[in-house]
Design a protein around this nucleic acid. Structure first.
Lengths: 359, 359
DNA sequence: AAGGTCGTTGAATCGTACA
DNA sequence: GTGTACGATTCAACGACCT
C-alpha cells in the first residue's frame, strides 16, 4: 500500500489520483466540483458592461447523465478513501446540487445536514427575471449511516454566543485582498472564501486530521487546513492553479498549538424587513387605507406589498416621495394606519412587531 | 375532457386524482410532498415485498428507488397538467429534496431558482450531534426551458425596500393561532405558514390563476389562494384533513376589489411612445444636440425622429448601441439633452411628459 | 485625517412584442 | 413559426481618487 502523500498537491485528474490513494485512509473529503452551469450567450449589466461568467471547459457536460456518471465515479472513490468514521462535504448550486445529493445518497453516504451559505454580497439578477441567486448549498454527509463522525459541538456552541450553530451561514464572497489575482484579473473563477472552509474544518475535523480536496483549485482548503493544524491532500489538473496554490500555502505558517484554535462565530445578518412581510404576516389586510401624518394623503395597501393611489403605484417609500414631490421618503414613518377608532400609528410599529417575533 | 374542479378538494391519492385533470390546464403546482417514506415504517419496496433490514445498503438503495418512482409518477402528472408557461414549486428538506430536484430535472422541468426558507424559530437539535436544522429548501421550476413563467418582479421589489427579492427568505414557523389544533394537539405535523404561500403566490401567479396542490394537507395553499383571488384545486387522501381544510377555507372571504390584487405593472406595460412623437410634439427641435451620459458622444435630432452623427444614422437605440460597440442600448436612458445651461436630463423624461399628457 | 464620489466586480442556466 | 426591433435591467463591498 502506498504512503499517503500528505500536504501535497497532486497534479492530475481527480478520479485517477483518488484511485491511487489507499482505502480508509483519510478523515474528511471537501469537494467543490464543477457546477455544470450551461450558461447562455454573454450577459451584460444594465450599464452595458459584460459579466465575466464561468465559461471554463471543465464546467461543461453534455447531459445530466454525463454529469451524474462523473459524480458517481469521483464520489465512489472519495468514499473508498474515507475512514470508517470519515465524512464528506460538497458544495454546489441548484444547477448541480440535486444531482450530487441524489448520487451520494445512492452510494450510501448518510446526510447529517445540508448547510446554506447565504451570501451577504451576491451578484444581482441583472434582467429582473428571477430572485437574486444569493446562496449556495453544502451537504455534510458521513461515509455511512453507522459512521460516528467528528462534530465539535461544544466549541461551536461556545464560539457562537452559547447557542447552537445553525444550518444557515451568512458569509461574504471571496473578494478584495483574499482573492488571488493575475495581471489584475481573477486567477480562478470560483475561489471560495477561507471563512467557509474555516468553519467546516473546525466543526468537523480534529487537529492532525487529513483532508482530501479533489478539486483543489487555488488551494483554499489547503491554506485553511494548514493554518488550523490539519493535513491536506489536494488534487488539481490545471498546473497553473497548482503553482498558485503551492505558493499560497507555502506562505502560511502552521500553528504551534492547533488545539487552541477556535471556530469562527456565526454572525447572523439582521434580515431586511420589507413592507411585503407586514402584509404577508396578515398585520395589514389588502385594501387597508394608510394616511400621511397630516391625513392629507391616503393610499391603499395592495396584496403584493405595494401601495396604490388613484394616480400612483409603488413601494411605501416611492409613493410617499411622489405625493410630497420629495426626492425620497421613509415610508415606515410617513404612512400611518388606524389602529383603533381615531388612533393612528406609523406602520413602522408593525415592522417592529415582525422583528420581535418568536425567535 | 373533464371540467376543471375549481376551488374544490379532491379526496384521494395524488397520482390518481392528478390523472383525472386535463392536459395543460393550470398555471401553478405547489407541492409539499411527504418524505417519511424512507424511514422504515410503512416502507414497501417497489415489488411490495417486506423490508427485512438485513442488507442495509441494498435496503437503502431500494427505499430511495421507491421514493424516486413515487416522485417521478406524481411529478410527471403535475407536468402534464401544467399549461405551457406553467410552473411548479416543491418544498422539502435534505431527506427528500435531492431526490425531488434530480427527478424534476430529469423530467424536463427547468429550475429558475432554489429558495431557502430560513426559519427564524427552528427546533433546536436536542442531542447536540448536528447543526440546528434551521431551513427548508424550495425549488421553483418552469414546465420547460421555453416556458415564459409569471414573475411579478416589480411587486417583489416594491415589497422589499425597493431592492430585488433574494433567494433566502426568513420567516417564522407556523405557530400560535394560525396552527390548526384538535383537542390541543396539532392537527397536521408539517403545516406550512401562510406567509410562505403568500409570497409564492404573489410572486409567481396572477389573480384568477389556478393552483393545484397535490398534497393539500390542512389547505394552506387553498386558504392563501382564496384570500389572494386565485383558484385552487386540492388533492388530499386523508379525509380528516379534507374536512379541516374545507372548514378553514370556508371561513375566508374572497376579496372584493381586484385592483388590490393586481401585481405592480412593469413600466414597459405603459403605452409605447416612439422618439418620433417627442419630436412631433415639439419637445425637441430638429437639430438639437443630444449627449451620452459622459458627454463623450453627441448626435443630432432629425426631423423624422431619427438621430445622426457624422458617421451614423438610425434610431436612438441603434446609434447608441453602435457608438458604444454594444449589442443593444436603451436610447431613452442613454441620450441626454441640455435642459438648462449645464443641466442635462435623459430624453426618457420627455417620453414621460408625453405619457402623462391629458389625452 | 476623515469622509464622499466614482468605478469595478462577483458560480448566471437573466426578453418580448410585433410584423 | 421566425426574424427584427424595441428597450428593460443591479446590490454590496472594496479600492482609487478627490475634497
Amino acid at each position: 500500500m502506498q504512503k499517503l502523500p500528505i500536504d501535497r498537491i497532486l497534479n492530475g485528474c481527480c478520479i485517477e489520483e483518488l484511485k491511487k490513494l489507499p482505502d480508509g485512509s483519510v478523515e474528511l473529503v471537501f469537494a467543490d466540483p464543477p457546477y455544470n452551469l450551461q450558461l447562455g450567450e454573454g450577459l451584460t449589466r444594465p450599464d452595458q458592461s459584460k459579466v465575466d461568467g464561468v465559461d471554463a471547459e471543465w464546467d461543461q457536460f453534455s447531459s445530466f447523465k454525463a454529469y451524474d456518471d462523473f459524480c458517481r465515479e469521483w464520489l465512489s472513490e472519495a468514499r473508498r478513501v474515507l475512514k470508517k468514521d470519515g465524512a464528506l462535504w460538497v458544495i454546489g448550486s441548484y444547477h448541480n446540487i440535486y444531482r450530487l445529493g441524489a448520487v451520494l445518497q445512492d452510494l450510501g453516504f448518510w446526510i447529517h445536514n445540508d448547510i446554506v451559505w447565504v451570501k451577504s454580497n451576491p451578484m444581482p439578477n441583472f434582467r429582473g427575471t428571477r430572485f437574486t441567486n444569493a446562496h449556495e448549498t453544502l451537504i455534510w454527509a458521513a461515509k455511512s449511516e453507522k459512521s460516528r463522525v467528528t462534530f465539535n459541538y461544544h466549541s461551536l456552541k461556545a464560539a457562537n454566543e452559547d447557542v447552537q450553530m445553525r444550518s444557515d451561514w451568512t458569509l461574504p464572497l471571496c473578494t478584495g485582498a483574499e482573492r488571488l489575482k493575475q495581471d489584475g484579473a481573477k486567477l480562478h473563477p470560483t475561489q471560495k472564501p477561507e471563512a467557509l472552509l474555516h468553519r467546516i474544518i473546525t466543526a468537523t475535523t480534529k487537529p492532525g486530521d487529513v483532508i482530501v480536496d479533489p478539486f483543489f483549485g487555488t488551494g483554499t482548503t489547503g491554506a485553511v487546513a494548514k493554518r488550523l493544524g490539519r493535513h491536506y491532500i489536494g488534487i488539481e489538473r490545471d498546473q497553473s492553479y497548482v503553482l498558485a496554490a503551492e505558493q499560497r500555502i507555502g506562505a502560511i505558517v502552521a500553528p504551534k498549538n492547533p488545539e487552541e484554535l477556535a471556530p469562527l462565530p456565526a454572525p447572523r445578518r439582521e434580515p431586511r424587513v420589507g413592507f411585503g412581510q407586514v402584509v404577508e404576516a396578515g398585520l395589514l389586510a389588502p385594501g387597508t387605507k394608510l394616511y400621511c401624518p397630516k391625513r392629507k394623503y391616503t393610499a391603499k395597501v395592495k396584496a403584493d406589498g405595494s401601495l396604490s393611489t388613484p394616480k400612483l403605484e409603488g413601494s411605501i417609500h416611492k409613493v410617499g416621495a411622489s405625493l410630497q414631490n420629495a426626492p425620497s421618503c421613509n415610508g415606515w414613518t410617513y404612512w400611518h394606519f388606524e389602529e383603533r377608532k381615531g388612533q393612528f400609528a406609523p406602520i413602522d410599529s408593525l415592522r417592529q412587531a415582525i422583528r420581535s417575533r418568536p425567535s
